[in-house]
Design a protein around this nucleic acid. Structure first.
Lengths: 209, 209
DNA sequence: TATTAAATGACAGCTACTCTCAAATTATGG
DNA sequence: CCATAATTTGAGAGTAGCTGTCATTTAATA
């Protein structure tokens, strides 16, 4: 949703053997890949190496992840955030609902999940191509956010006000990933986003229609 | 600055012969590349083809553009926008100064420049990898925008308020590139961005510190 | 004009990614 | 439990983006 909060999914407990095996393979590939990336660097790690470590063929790697970048970029958190926002009481103002929803998802992460999340962020910071793809995913997520916001406001999802609010959220959130300087996004940062939004009002005030 | 307003630069009139030749080569490569992209498609056009059409070797192509993507993504407009914002009278409120500055640069484009700009936008819409890289460039531009805003506000460029405002601008602007639907960004859209920002105030109002 | 610096082209090599086809594995109906 | 159908997998060949090296050409300088 913001450019963070993404990690490996836990394979669902029950399902056909086929499904479970696929989920396990996918998780394994991602795990060993992240391991190799953080130890040798992203560029220095070849798909062949990943495949070998995961004990699959390179062909299989590409069946699970269309590109090498997808191993890092893909995640399953966005739906959780949407749901969390939807779960906020109706009397809560939209802006608060969004902030609280995002925050809650982050707060529920286990220590282990935070760990892989930090490694992901580290990769985004050091590998420009990954950041680019991550931003693309983020922009796509704005669509979803627009959806929930519109729902809450009781307007159609095409409403410009809803779109603009979603855009502002994401735009402001992105500024908390400072260039270069290693700052790991954590749930505390939502307070900062909140304050930033409040500060925004000062500058928007003078705008006359 | 937003994800638009980028095109080929006009080679400066005077300079050493070397400089002029380089500028001409660069412009030629970009021109023939854009031509091929729009006629055959981006993926279907190989660097070898571009090099041949531009009458240079593939090696030379990569000396001018580090990647095939850079042919489309690179531009020289950001400095113009920054300058235009700076040129706004000091009594103009920041938000207005930014909007007016951006708008002016767009208004000064020639019909020819608009044409290539539209082709660029078309490529961003149809080629995901290009959009990703473009977004990366956009985020980088937020830094510059933060700089001017901070300047105007008389605060250090690290100020969170300045960063947040810059982020909000870009975030809101991005929402005017609707997914899929072919809408070409033009200078008129700045009125919409302006209205969207005004609408934002309603939702930010209820936020309590 | 002679010398120096820069731009270019040819070539080799690596790797991400695609496609095809045969072998292996899992699901399903009797 | 077995036969058959549907998926998943691996192997191998091929394309193209990109990097690096080195000799050759072209522009700048004295």
């Amino acid at each position: 949703m913001t450019s963070d909060a993404r990690a490996a999914a836990v394979p669902p407990a029950a399902a056909g053997l086929r499904e479970r095996k696929k989920a396990k393979t996918r998780a394994t590939i991602r795990a060993v890949a992240m391991q190799l990336f953080t130890s040798q660097g992203y560029a220095a790690t070849t798909v062949e190496q990943i495949a070998e470590s995961a004990e699959v063929s390179p062909s299989t790697f590409f069946r699970y992840f269309p590109t090498k970048e997808d191993v890092v970029v893909t995640d399953d958190y966005d739906p959780l955030i949407i749901e969390a926002i939807r779960a906020q009481p109706p009397e809560t103002p939209v802006a608060d609902a969004v902030l609280l929803g995002m925050r809650q998802v982050f707060e529920r992460l286990t220590e282990q999940e935070w760990d892989s999340e930090r490694r992901r962020q580290e990769l985004f910071r050091s590998v420009p191509e990954l950041l680019a793809r991550q931003l693309q995913a983020t922009v796509a997520a704005v669509e979803m956010l627009t959806g929930v916001i519109a729902e809450r406001l009781g307007v159609p999802p095409t409403d410009f006000g809803a779109r603009a609010l979603a855009g502002a959220f994401v735009g402001v959130s992105l500024t908390f990933l400072p260039p270069g300087r290693p700052h790991h996004f954590d749930s505390h940062d939502f307070d900062n986003v909140r304050e930033a939004l409040i500060g925004l009002r000062t500058h928007l005030e003078p705008l006359q229609p």
